[in-house]
């Protein structure tokens, strides 16, 4: 059984609603209390921990607005049972850049016009960081294949593709 799973007997115990539990979010331990234990990671991040960066738009994993990383893997936070990831490292868009100090992906999104209403943007930022970490020089079809799970209703995606290409080029030219 997992360490954090509180057990009164060796098998039957587990995390119960009244217990509260701890998540590791953006490098810090965060206590979750008052949560209905069936809550998704998205709802816990937003309504229990006040991290509003991940957005909810479909509750079905169809839109990617709630993209976060769990142990370095991009997932839809709405499809993660929060109480099941107590031993994982969770990173949200808030971990990328500092207030007023944009990450290179965030900067390119703003400059390239990839942000309109901005509701899908945080999920895209998380996904694009992951894409470029795994694939520093993606072709356009790689970008499309990597971002099919992030719906945008404003831009028609053209400026988003442009922004990803711009970041890839800058990183290449930056030589790092």
């Amino acid at each position: 059984m997992s360490e954090l799973t509180r057990t009164d007997d060796s098998i039957g115990g587990g995390i119960e609603a009244a217990d509260g539990y701890r998540l590791h979010v953006n490098g810090a331990a965060r206590e979750v209390t008052g949560s209905w234990i069936g809550e998704s990671l998205l709802d816990v991040l937003r309504d229990r921990l006040g991290l509003y960066g991940a957005k909810g738009a479909c509750e079905q994993g169809e839109c990617g607005s709630c993209s976060v990383t769990v142990d370095g893997t991009v997932v839809c936070a709405c499809l993660v049972l929060a109480a099941s990831v107590t031993e994982s490292e969770i990173a949200t868009v808030e971990s990328l850049g500092e207030p007023g100090q944009l990450s290179d992906v965030q900067q390119a999104f703003v400059e390239c016009g990839a942000v309109q209403c901005g509701f899908c943007t945080p999920g895209l930022i998380v996904t694009v960081h992951d894409l470029l970490d795994q694939m520093p020089d993606p072709a356009e079809h790689d970008i499309r294949a990597s971002l099919v799970g992030n719906l945008c209703r404003c831009t028609g995606y053209g400026r988003i593709i442009e922004a990803v290409l711009v970041v890839a080029r800058r990183r290449r030219e930056g030589g790092s």
């Binding site: 059984m1 997992s2 115990g13 587990g14 107590t86």
Partner: peptide, 12 residues
Amino acid sequence: MTVLAPRTLSDA
């Protein structure tokens, strides 16, 4: 509701 998270198949 309880969330049970065993780490081995036999525990599961």
